[in-house]
Design a protein around this nucleic acid. Sequence first.
DNA 1: CCACCTTCCGAACGATCGTTAGCCTCCCGA
DNA 2: TCGGGAGGCTAACGATCGTTCGGAAGGTGG
Lengths: 190, 190
Amino acid sequence: MSARRAELTRAAARLFAEKGYHGTSIGDLAEALGVQKGSLYAHIESKADLLWEVAREGADAFHAALDAVPDEGPVVERIRAALRAHLRVVSEQLDVATVFVREWRYLEGERRDAFLAERRRYEERFRALFREGRELGELRTDLDDGTAALLALSAANWAYTWLRAGSGTDELADRFTALLLDGMRGYASR
Amino acid sequence: MSARRAELTRAAARLFAEKGYHGTSIGDLAEALGVQKGSLYAHIESKADLLWEVAREGADAFHAALDAVPDEGPVVERIRAALRAHLRVVSEQLDVATVFVREWRYLEGERRDAFLAERRRYEERFRALFREGRELGELRTDLDDGTAALLALSAANWAYTWLRAGSGTDELADRFTALLLDGMRGYASR
DNA sequence: CCACCTTCCGAACGATCGTTAGCCTCCCGA
DNA sequence: TCGGGAGGCTAACGATCGTTCGGAAGGTGG
């Protein structure tokens, strides 16, 4: 892929995140590259191609981040690492993450199906951590692991709305992890 | 407001939630009412009016739900009630809630500003619960209440993506509350 | 030096967009 | 009984949409 084409994809990620897919015109993208709108078709076949590419880039980034989480060792540490990994992708590739979380639904046809499968797989990998934690007794044995994973994933998926780069992302992930593990109830009332 | 106008607002909420604001045309709305698109302008002045109305309806619903939460009594119970209230709005008015959470950002000008103020006020009311809980010692005194509120609000705000009506919404809210309060860690490893 | 490939331009395409206009019909209250 | 508002129609508006096309510049490899 040429350098120019990569520039176009980056501009698409930024504008789709900022104004939404349907709120971004081919003219907007051309203007971002300082070019006439017809010229973009030297690089793409359609606007939908760009959405597909950015969405896939997001899926790759999140899966790659999870790949770096060890699949052995204390589950509690792996959950912490998974949350760190997810939030790091959000903070370092905010535009791509935003498209991955919010704009993917404007994909159509088999691309939409393929994306949804990847997204479900990602969430399943997350969910597996909590299930394993319960089964191994590292999390409470009466844990509703589906609800637990949903809570953690909600925090992760919502992060694109407030997380900004450079503000102690790892520490924030650790604060979430600590809350999820130990709760907020006072010692006195336990 | 006439019955027909209310129908239009309902159709707008449904279509904006389903296809997005920019993905919904005036023609789509007219078709939903079984009418020519020009006829809609007997009821509205512009498409943006409909987005504004649905967004405001959402803000009203969420604030009204929080109003029913008592402002005295055990903080833990009030947090449970607030989560129940929020999820109940999501499950009973999913379309409106979706616009409130996701589509509001296509508002423009002072309407956008006014909405954002309402949204921040809502989140502040939520946040206050956790702060009070810490101050009164009902939650742990070393609690990072900002992060705690963020975690709870993330779960609440993300709910529109998966919550569907009629499946024990209150019980789900209670499971979230229990997890947030007591955490997931095993008794053995505590 | 020539052939080719990439990249862009300028102009135009048909389609669709949100909105306006003039006119008609029906119903309800005075 | 009559006036008027509510609600709908058809037709059209200018704007903007995504996309196509023929051609031209510029650099690169043979």
